[in-house]
């Protein structure tokens, strides 16, 4: 009597030497991916250790970012990261949903190819080119048109006060919104498409208008779109070059969108090569570790949401 063992859930077992070697060697590289992530976490922890030991959790809540006195508190930087990416999300998500609905429900089918090509193109433009455009086109426009307009009409609000530099939080928010829009829109579009077509037809047959049938679909895919937005958030939080080039790079907590600000990624990019003391470098690595942890959490949540969407429709089908 003999059992074919089904070890590792692999679909095939063999005593063929080539096969065994093949599984081992590809498995080794799969392990490399895993080891790489662990190694990254460890390296950063090791590099950040002096800063962690000196500042502890105070690193996250103190606002002293002072290389001269070697005092490092990342609160303004964390604040800038959260505010810039959240505001970008606020602009991008509604637009993305609009675009996704347009592409999946309204646009004629011939538009599909050029539209997906455009999305690809947008996603393919390097961050530093967005930054270049930001410096020479977006920032002057904000300085000369947007900020004067806002301070004249809404200047009583704390968000729109101060001198119009152009460089600052507002520019960073706008450029981030442009950059994360294609990601959120294209994932949302795929998710909306994954809803079986008969659901829309059922709604239409009951006398619903097109919009009402779309609304039914959107309600179905809520968590998927939330996941797509989280992926966009993850991207915004880690976005470096474009933000560094337009945000003004000053660790400042201010209600005004006109003021310069800082993000974790831009602080690292901007100061790492200039950091002279060990504690300075250690603090920057500490910042990288915080950024690493935050993006992992955001991405894990996002994947879970998008995956749950996938599975939902697979079982329905």
């Amino acid at each position: 009597m003999k059992f074919f063992k089904n070890k590792n859930g692999s679909i095939y077992t063999s005593n063929n030497l080539g096969d065994i070697f093949f599984e081992k060697i590809t498995g080794f590289f799969a392990a490399v991916v895993l080891i790489l992530v662990i190694l990254m976490a460890y390296e950063m922890y090791a590099g950040a250790k002096p800063s962690i030991e000196k500042f502890g959790w105070g690193f996250l809540v103190s606002s002293a970012w002072d290389p001269v006195r070697e005092m490092f508190g990342a609160l303004p930087i964390i604040y800038g990261t959260i505010v810039s990416s959240m505001l970008a999300l606020l602009i991008s998500v509604p637009l993305s949903i609009g675009v996704a609905v347009f592409l999946s429900e309204i646009a004629p089918s011939w538009l599909e190819k050029p539209a997906s090509y455009l999305v690809e193109l947008l996603a393919g433009i390097p961050s530093v080119v967005y930054g270049l455009w930001g410096i020479f086109v977006l920032v002057p426009w904000i300085r000369n048109d947007v900020q004067p307009f806002l301070s004249q009409n809404f200047g009583f609000l704390p968000f729109f006060q101060g001198p119009p530099y152009g460089f600052g939080l507002l520019a960073a928010v706008l450029i981030l919104s442009i950059m994360i829009l294609p990601i959120i829109a294209s994932i949302s579009r795929d998710i909306i498409r994954s809803v079986p077509h008969d659901q829309r037809e059922a709604a239409l047959a009951l006398g619903a208008t097109k919009w009402e049938s779309i609304l039914i679909v959107l309600k179905e895919v809520k968590s998927g779109i939330l996941g797509a937005s989280m992926l966009g958030l993850g991207r915004a939080v880690g976005e470096t070059m474009a933000v560094t080039m337009v945000i003004g790079n000053r660790p400042l907590i201010s209600a005004s969108l006109f003021d310069p600000s800082y993000t974790m990624a831009s602080a690292i990019a901007n100061e790492f090569t200039e950091a002279t003391s060990d504690m300075y470098i250690s603090s920057l690595i500490h910042l990288a570790l915080v950024l690493f942890v935050i993006t992992i959490i955001i991405n894990a949540l996002a994947r879970l949401l998008v995956w749950s969407m996938d599975r939902k429709w697979k079982t329905v089908r």
């Binding site: 991916v33 790489l36 992530v37 990254m40 880690g238 950024l291 690493f292 992992i296 955001i298 991405n299």
Partner: peptide
């Protein structure tokens, strides 16, 4: 890994 910012 794909979500880790490239600066990290």
């Amino acid at each position: 890994l794909s979500g880790v910012p490239s600066i990290v």
